[in-house]
């Protein structure tokens, strides 16, 4: 299943151009552009209320952006303009899947069932849109077994095999996070969008999450994530985009961003004219 990541890592999977989103009088996102490379982990960071989740909701179709273009390029060169697709088509056709800041599991379904629901479209086709499946044709039975195998694969990756038959709502918090990611992976995405995956995790759960994310990247799936926790971002991401008040203030490698005075100012909350001061201090090496 693993694809060589190096040969592909240079082309762009997601290109966001001049994205703007207005809620009534509030300009939540203002002319925001960035690119995410295939096979990389791109992090979108920024202070509270910067508009990160709004960007996510625009990319995954839960909001229709006021302006801008979001282009997704698949491995085979197929292009999709995400802002023109309906939310479920973005997952179904463009192969972008996502998780939520407040975990959204099907808590009354078992862990395994959660992963099977994620394979809905493939199974629908295999069951001849239910009709052939009702007749119990072997094609559906085979697809059904394959779906369980795929679920097992991700259960194993997410270290959840033991809990496969338990209701999802019964899992501890960290396991729910991993399940949500495993579920998103079961849709067979090329780009995985994670909304604050590390929020609320203890250090051990955080480490388990990092392992999971790395193994996802090793499969050739690109990751776009929103994160608050800088240590997580710096550790796992290849590329960081910083957002403040709906505008991009920095974009580059983790090291570049870490030392960008504008970013520091945004996180420490200083006035604009103080930015220069910090710049100077940085040069002197006092921070």
């Amino acid at each position: 299943m693993s694809l060589g990541t190096n040969s592909m890592s240079n082309d762009t999977i997601l290109k966001v151009e001049h994205l703007s989103m207005r809620f009534g009088g509030l300009m939540a996102i203002n002319d925001f552009s960035f690119e995410a490379k295939r096979g990389e982990i791109t992090a979108l960071i920024g202070p509270n209320g910067a508009g990160k989740t709004t960007v996510f909701n625009c990319i995954t179709g839960f909001y229709k952006p006021t302006m801008g273009m979001i282009t997704l390029t698949q491995r085979d060169g197929e292009h999709y303009l995400l802002e023109r697709l309906r939310d479920f088509e973005i997952t179904k056709l463009a192969r972008v899947s996502r998780t939520f800041q407040n975990i959204r599991l099907f808590s009354g379904l078992t862990v395994l069932e959660n992963l099977l629901v994620a394979q809905h479209n493939a199974l629908m086709k295999a069951s001849g849109y239910t009709i052939l499946g009702l007749l119990g044709l072997p094609a559906y039975r085979k697809a059904s077994a394959a779906a369980i195998d795929k679920a097992k694969y991700w259960l194993d990756k997410a270290n959840l095999t033991e809990r496969a038959d338990d209701p999802a709502g019964d899992l501890p918090y960290g396991a729910q996070r991993r399940l949500e990611i495993a579920r998103a992976m079961c849709t067979g995405p090329e780009l995985l969008c994670l909304d604050e995956p590390a929020a609320g995790l203890n250090p051990r759960e955080s480490a388990a999450l990092n392992t999971l994310l790395h193994s996802i990247r090793d499969e050739g799936v690109s990751i776009l994530l929103i994160e608050h926790d800088m240590s997580v971002v710096m550790e796992i991401s290849d590329h960081v985009v910083v957002l403040e008040y709906g505008q991009k203030i920095s974009d580059g490698t983790p090291d570049h961003v870490k030392n960008d005075p504008k970013v520091i100012a945004a996180y420490l909350g200083v006035e604009d004219d103080e930015v220069e001061e910090i710049e100077e201090q940085l040069d002197e090496g006092t921070i």
Binding site: F88, T91, T99, L105, E113, L116, L123, L134, A184
Partner: peptide
């Protein structure tokens, strides 16, 4: 029968969380 088919699972998933359903590509 339907409960064990994708459509039936999608129904139950819809009952549990409609937004999550949409995020998984379910119409």
């Amino acid at each position: 029968k339907l409960r064990r088919m994708p459509i039936g699972r999608a129904w139950e998933a819809l009952r549990e969380d409609e937004i999550a359903c949409r995020s998984l590509g379910i119409n």
